[in-house]
Design a protein around this nucleic acid. Structure first.
Length: 746
DNA sequence: CTAGGGTTAG
């Protein structure tokens, strides 16, 4: 025994560098191989396990059941790290070992088949596990546990529950481990009811007294946002382990209670609990102060832990500090899919698609297998039609690899094609989807609104209700945006009512969408009412209200709204200034406009963009200061674009400045600005001077270039009434029919 | 048993 141990120890330290032949005696016996397998387990390195097994067969040594047990243990010990799980070899090797197991007849040992079953579950090969289980002539509680755990950890939550019921029916008595494997499957709002039943079962059987069962239950309730239940369970645990504490930190973090998470962490240290790497990961996901946590990681020596570094990369990338994320990522000796995906999503958020594509290439070079989440992160970056080529490429990659079968990926594709304006592809992707989740409906509805097909969005909304989905804040916000676009006030009001009656979470974007809808539909008072009801409007909502006042011709209200916003301690952004400046244009407030334009740079350090400059040109020229406007354009730091020249030109129309107008029109044509608007303006300009020949000439030019202006569309609300009523009677929006009759058409 | 990457809105 002692010599075997020595060999094992020797192997552990030197195996990777010297060949196996060097260590093996000429006539090795079985115990030598056993101790080699043991050392693989100890070092959590299964890379040599298969080679050793081959040598064993070559040496004509007959394996025993213990051989297989130790061999599979070597794999399972390594399976906790992701390397063996990601390795395609592990699956093939396990298959081969299993064949030998059958040949030698040792598969009659329940414990050996169960060990394989468990390993297949850990590798994610759940169908192999299932198959093995079905083939087993005899099973024990451990076999059932392994199958339940396999289903559970691979996301087959219903199957896990079903197997549990079957297990009870066949008269097996669950143990603590059964529940520990099963309970994580119930951490979903749709099956928390079953989770509570299991909890009850645990109480009745006394199995819930086990700390690990209680940990799992705590986490289950936290995942369903039932923090009270989680707290009660946590308190109930007599001997809390570090896992219990981590679970509670995670519970608060997942539900946005960051201060509470921090308190639990402090309490944990007070109780002299040992902080482990999962604690750090939980803290990071609970929005702990990034710099301090990073320091803490370095001081406590967790900086060598790959999972911790991965989490740090994710946190830095998530808060927009992609530089720090990149520095850390580059220092990682062993890159992994999660950290690289975090990098991709950071670059995508910043719109740096060059680097996104580079990361994707790196992913393939490093032989990582992109999964659905990685795909979605990449797709997310393709924000406009300039990326159609790369977007199609990624779509093709998804088709080839089978990743497009994942509805996550299809959702990503739907929103990408919406941004490309390719609504036909959106529809075909959507119709080919099997089970359509709420998020898929939302994606396609928002896609319709984005490309200006509001009536299709409404129709889809009806269908969505027919399929039994309840709209959420995002559905409503998308539809409200559609209402704003076509001025569909009554539908917008119904949506508002739906929000109020169903206590939908009044998130920032929903409030903003409501205010915007009322403004665009010409209901300033309603917009004001909604705005005043908001406790703490966010910057976007303030911006909407400011520009709304401007749009409605209340420039002074817009400006006082702007001051009020600053009194609330909010800092304006570029969009705020667009609202403020356009309000000045509407009111002809030249002096004020100039002041705000200056303030943008002097008080807030923002460099005015093209749009801000166009506003100034518009402001000056409309008010008749054409000469000053021209000087302003000449002094601009950025190259003027069509909007700037267009603003000048339209003022020439108002002030009948023919010569300047002609000069500007030429410039615009040189900019390749070939829009009907330009010809219409010029035609009007000539008409104002009575130069009818020129009018005819411009009109002909317009026809020749095919730019006959965009035809106007008039929308009357009543025309959509029927469609809307259809939608309403399917939803509980229509339950209140009185409202519908009482509200007079506006 | 606890844990890290993602989607719809803006």
């Amino acid at each position: 025994m002692s010599s075997a141990y020595t060999i094992g120890h020797y192997v552990r330290t030197t195996l990777p560098r010297i060949g196996l032949e060097f260590i093996l005696p000429s006539n090795p016996n079985i115990s030598v191989f056993h101790s080699l397998f043991k050392s693989c387990s100890e070092t959590k390195d299964s890379r040599w396990a298969f080679i050793i097994f081959r040598r064993l067969l070559e040496s004509n040594v007959k394996p025993s059941d213990l051989t297989f047990s130790l061999l599979i243990k070597a794999y399972v010990a390594d399976a906790s790290s992701s390397t063996v799980v990601d390795s395609p070899n592990a699956k093939i090797e396990a298959n081969q070992i299993q064949t030998h197991l059958r040949k030698s007849g040792f598969n009659q040992y329940v414990y050996l088949t169960t060990a394989f079953l468990d390993f297949y579950g850990k590798l994610g090969c759940i169908y192999y596990a299932q198959h093995l289980f079905e083939e087993m002539p005899r099973r024990d509680v451990v076999s059932w546990n392994a199958l339940i755990c396999g289903y559970s950890r691979n996301g087959y939550d219903y199957d896990a529950l079903e197997v549990f019921v079957q297990m009870l029916r066949e008269g097996f008595s669950p143990c603590q481990r059964t529940l520990v494997g099963l309970v994580p499957s119930c951490g979903r709002p749709d099956i928390i009811f079953q989770g509570k039943a299991i909890h009850g079962f645990g109480i009745k059987s006394g199995l819930d007294l086990d700390c690990r069962v209680k940990n799992a239950l705590t986490s289950m309730y936290a995942k369903c946002a039932d923090l009270q239940a989680a707290e009660v369970l946590f308190e109930e645990i007599c001997e809390k382990t570090e896992v219990s504490w981590n679970t509670m930190i995670g519970a608060y973090g997942q539900n946005g209670l960051f201060d509470e998470a921090m308190l639990v962490f402090k309490q944990m240290q007070k109780e002299r609990m040992e902080v482990n790497y999962v604690t750090i990961i939980c803290l990071l996901s609970a929005n702990a102060h990034l710099d301090s946590t990073h320091c803490y990681v370095i001081k406590t020596g967790f900086a060598t832990d790959a999972s911790v570094i991965t989490s740090l990369v994710c946190s830095y990338a998530g808060c927009g500090n992609i530089e720090s994320a990149g520095l850390l990522y580059n220092l990682m000796p062993q890159k992994n899919l999660v950290s690289l995906t975090a990098m991709i999503s950071g670059y995508a958020e910043k719109g740096n698609m060059g680097l996104v594509v580079e990361c994707f290439t790196q992913m393939l070079q490093l032989k990582m297998k992109p999964d659905a989440v990685a795909m979605v992160s990449i797709l997310h970056g393709f924000t406009d039609p300039t990326f159609i080529g790369s977007g199609l490429g990624i779509h093709a990659y998804g088709l080839k690899t089978g990743l497009c079968a994942d509805c996550l990926v299809v959702n990503g594709l739907i929103s990408m094609y919406s941004k490309f304006g390719d609504i036909e592809t959106v529809f075909s992707l959507f119709s080919e989807m099997g089970e359509k989740q709420l998020i898929s409906w939302n994606s396609v509805i928002s896609g319709c609104v984005q490309v200006g097909r509001t009536s299709d969005a409404m129709e889809l909304f009806c269908q969505m209700r027919m399929y039994g989905h309840s709209p959420d804040a995002i559905t409503i916000a998308s539809l409200l945006a559609g209402c704003s676009e076509v001025g569909f006030l009554q539908f917008g009001e119904r949506l508002h009512n739906y929000v109020l009656r169903n206590n939908l979470d009044m998130e920032d974007f929903l409030e903003t969408a409501l205010v915007d809808m009322y403004i665009k539909c010409g209901r300033l008072e309603s917009a004001e009412r909604v705005f005043k009801s908001i406790k703490e409007p966010c910057l976007a909502t303030w911006n909407t209200m400011i520009s709304g006042y401007g749009l409605s011709g209340h420039e002074h209200k817009a400006l006082s709204c702007y001051s009020e916003m600053q009194e609330q301690g909010l800092k304006p952004d570029r969009i705020t200034f667009l609202g403020v400046l356009s309000a000045c244009i509407h009111g002809g407030l030249v002096w004020e406009g100039k002041r705000y334009f200056r303030s943008m740079r002097e008080d807030f350090g923002m460099i005015p963009g093209l749009q801000h400059n166009a506003c100034m040109v518009d402001l000056l020229s409309r008010a008749g200061f054409l000469e000053e406007a021209v000087i302003f354009v000449k002094n601009m730091e950025v190259e003027p674009d069509s909007a700037v020249w267009g603003a000048l030109l339209s003022s020439c129309c108002i002030h009948q400045e023919l010569k300047l107008g002609e000069c500007l029109a030429k410039r615009l044509l040189l900019l390749d600005y070939n829009s009907g608007g330009l010809y219409v303006l010029m035609s009007n300009l000539y008409a104002s001077k009575g130069r009818w020949d020129d009018v005819a000439r411009v009109r002909k030019m317009m026809k020749d270039t095919g730019g006959d202006g965009s035809s106007g569309i008039s929308l009357i609300e009543v025309s959509s009434l029927e469609k809307m009523n259809n939608s309403m009677c399917l939803s509980d929006l229509s339950l209140n029919t009185n409202y519908w009759q009482l509200s007079s058409p506006h």
